[in-house]
Computed example of a mutant assay.
Amino acid sequence: MANAAVKKQAQANLAAIKNLHTVSAIINALYIISYLLFRRPASIKSYLILSLPAWIIEYQLDKLGRPRYSPQNGSLISAGEDLSQAGLTELLWDIVYVTWGCDVLAFLIGRSWVWLLYLVIPVYGSYMAYTSFIGPMLKNRAAAASSDQPEPVGKKKEKKQKVKHVR
């Protein structure tokens, strides 16, 4: 049973990697063709610079998720990391999707200012950092500071506490 789950994950990873490479090749080819034929957008520098993170991430996702097989008998050694897991992997996919969106809009609209939409990534990252780490940490500090002062205890509660300590 466990081997079936590993094989299923390997197949899902292979499908995700194949789709990643196919869509990336199509979008990048369309961008380059639109630049060469129509000079839309006028500069290719922004495309090359801002697409570089997506290409690096594409390589990393391929490296992480590609299943490994035994060269002797072709059996599955490792299914690779789950490419649909939440967290950092999900953020990597989001960066690739935003890059593709900017690529498509840039060659459809023909303007390089579309790459300003790439600022969504650091804004989203800051939001996630605040809601996941910074905000809770600040709340915990405030709660710890307020808990340093002893709370006033009622007479009944004080008696119950004394009875518990006596037993």
Rank of each mutant, 00 (worst) to 15 (best):
Y31R: 03
I57L: 08
L64M: 14
L83H: 13
W100N: 04
I33R: 05
L20I: 06
A79T: 05
L50M: 09
L117T: 01
R66T: 09
Y59L: 12
G80K: 08
I27V: 07
S46Y: 05
V123Y: 09
A86E: 08
L50Q: 00
R39I: 03
G101Y: 02
R39P: 00
A79H: 05
I57Y: 02
G135F: 11
P71T: 02
S46C: 01
Y69M: 08
Y47V: 05
T131A: 07
Q60A: 13
Y35W: 15
Q72F: 14
L50F: 05
A25F: 14
P41S: 07
G135L: 12
L20Q: 00
V104Y: 06
I121Y: 03
I121N: 07
S84P: 02
D62Q: 06
A29E: 01
I33W: 13
A25E: 02
L105E: 02
T22C: 10
L76H: 08
L88W: 13
L91S: 12
L52T: 10
P67V: 03
S132L: 15
I109E: 00
L36N: 01
R68K: 14
S112E: 13
S112P: 02
F107H: 05
W93I: 05
W55G: 06
L116F: 04
Y47E: 00
Y59T: 11
Y47F: 11
L50T: 01
S132M: 15
L91G: 13
A25V: 06
I27A: 09
I77L: 13
P67F: 00
S84V: 05
I33G: 01
E90P: 14
L52H: 01
C102Y: 01
I121K: 04
S46P: 08
E90R: 07
S78I: 03
V123M: 14
P122I: 06
I77V: 12
D82E: 11
L91E: 09
I134T: 07
T22Y: 05
S75D: 14
L61T: 09
V104K: 00
L92W: 06
I77W: 13
L37A: 11
L50P: 04
